[in-house]
């Protein structure tokens, strides 16, 4: 994830309304390689720009992000995350693999459209008791 791999502005913000470039470094791949399609949504990138995104990490979008010029999947994420949604919830809603959501979410965080819900460093005893009691009461 070196900075140098992000040459131009349009590459840095692939979801912020820039034109899709179906040609270029991954041109023609679809003919030979239909199985790679999940990562077409990320222009072929598989490594998120932001570390530490777990499957259960909760994300929340700022209301202002709704008016940002975002492309389809990013827009959906920003809409869904008006209330907190986990990476896994988003993957289910968008029907794409977790790894794909991670890349898109990481971009949105870097762009300031999504925030990670800060979690406690450790589960406190009272939190675990709360989990236990709530599960019991389900």
């Amino acid at each position: 994830m070196s900075e140098s791999s992000w040459g131009s502005e349009s590459e840095l913000f692939p979801y912020a309304g820039g034109p899709l470039t179906p040609t270029g470094r991954h041109s023609g791949d679809m003919d030979e390689d239909p199985v790679i399609r999940p990562f077409m949504l990320t222009n072929g990138r598989t490594q998120p720009l932001h570390d530490g995104l777990r499957i259960e990490t909760l994300l929340r979008a700022a209301p202002a992000a709704l008016s940002a010029p975002l492309r389809f999947e990013s827009r959906r994420i920003v809409e869904l995350a008006q209330s907190p949604m986990s990476v896994a919830d988003l993957a289910v809603a968008l029907r794409v693999p977790l790894g794909v959501v991670r890349v898109i979410v990481a971009d949105l965080i870097t762009q300031g459209f999504l925030d990670v819900e800060i979690q406690p460093e450790e589960f406190s005893t009272s939190l675990i008791e709360r989990i236990r009691d709530r599960v019991r009461a389900l």
Binding site: D29, V35, R37, V96
Partner: peptide
């Protein structure tokens, strides 16, 4: 249900991890 995609190198000799060429999921 949720899905994850496994990414595997195809032996084409491409080492640019940012490109999908040479990979399969």
């Amino acid at each position: 249900l949720v899905t994850e995609a496994e990414l595997t190198e195809k032996s084409i000799g491409i080492d640019d991890t940012s490109a999908v060429s040479g990979k399969t999921t």
